[in-house]
């Protein structure tokens, strides 16, 4: 798969304060990558570095193979972006704002494309209103419109769902998925709404204290590591017999309110059901408890915090 964005050993410091540490990340064509991290972890800084708004202290960023520092104009021509709030000129209409953006590209972007993009983000009916009259949600949608206007290969979005209502969030999610699927657009999206990324992204990079602590597929994150045990809840009877059977077979099991919870590997679930049935246990339901992205995120960042504290303690 083509690499659209390559971030290698990226570091950024303001004076003596190190904001980003050796961030390395690749995004491929058609891939939607979420960028997760607590407040102040360096998400917006990374995005500003990708878009050339900040100067790189160390490392390199390439967009479609073009270095952002050495070949800024070519690299940035492949990117559309929103950084923080998508502020546009309030005294112009949405259409006029998009015309302003269109004139900044060497390739001709005509009125048809502008209308098409406005239609895509659902602003056609208000296209000629001054955007000072727009709600925050409408401005966000216009922000997305200006970002995709020139048909970029990479979309960089910093907290794009801010101010959107649930329907708006869903529309945006559907739009991004469609663009990624149909046009091969790669999307690099930061958000503090973990659930949002869970539904949108293929991959999530977790950032903590300026360092990427993990890059995982959403499915892996949710399930945890493949060799790890997940909790499986059984509704069955008799509970005490079932508990004994599992314990005799070396499986950890607890009972609470007539529900038996066993800690199993995902691939061991069918054989466990078979074992219980064979021993006359009646099974009404089996539920494997998957981890939410939030659990995974907290787990990863907590691990790192613990590591940090350990390091601090050692250095003392």
């Amino acid at each position: 798969m083509d690499k659209i964005l390559e971030i290698k050993n990226l570091s950024k410091s303001f004076g003596s304060r190190l904001i980003l540490r050796n961030v390395t990340l690749d995004i491929h064509r058609g891939e939607i990558v979420g960028y997760l991290g607590p407040n102040g972890s360096g998400k917006t800084t990374t995005i500003k570095l990708v878009l050339g708004l900040l100067k790189i202290t160390h490392g390199e960023i390439k967009i479609c193979g073009h270095d952002v520092v050495k070949d800024f104009e070519t690299a940035i021509a492949h990117v559309g972006g929103i950084v923080e709030n998508p502020e546009m000129y309030p005294y112009l209409s949405a259409r006029e704002n998009l015309r302003q953006c269109a004139r900044m590209y060497d390739t001709k972007i005509g009125e048809e494309r502008i209308s098409e993009v406005l239609e895509l983000v659902g602003l056609s009916s208000r296209a000629d209103d001054k955007i000072s009259k727009y709600s925050l949600g409408m401005r966000q949608r216009l922000g997305v419109a200006q970002a995709i206007l020139h048909r970029p290969e990479l979309l960089v979005l910093d907290e794009p769902t801010n101010g959107l209502d649930p329907a708006g969030i869903k529309d945006l999610r559907d739009l991004l998925k469609k663009l990624a699927r149909e046009t091969g657009l790669a999307v690099f999206i930061s958000s503090h709404l973990l659930g949002e990324l869970e539904q949108l992204c293929d991959t999530v990079a977790v950032l903590n204290h300026g360092a990427v602590v993990g890059v995982r597929s959403v499915n892996d994150l949710k399930k945890g590591r493949s060799d790890s045990l997940s909790e499986v809840e059984f509704t069955l009877s008799p509970v005490s017999v079932a508990s004994d059977i599992l314990k005799n077979n070396g499986i950890e099991a607890t009972v609470e309110r007539e529900i038996l919870t066993a800690r199993l590997k995902h691939e061991d679930i069918p054989s466990t059901i078979y074992l219980l049935s064979l021993n006359g246990v009646k099974i009404w339901s089996v539920v494997e408890k998957t981890r939410s992205l939030e659990d995974a995120f907290l787990e990863m960042t907590t691990d790192l915090r613990a590591d940090d504290e350990a390091m601090k303690g050692a250095s003392k």
């Binding site: 878009l51 050339g52 708004l53 800024f72 104009e73 940035i76 923080e84 000129y89």
Partner: peptide
């Protein structure tokens, strides 16, 4: 002051 510089400067222009 209006924040539009962030959009103005991410265009392929020197």
């Amino acid at each position: 002051s209006s924040g539009t510089a962030r959009l103005l400067l991410i265009r392929p222009k020197k």
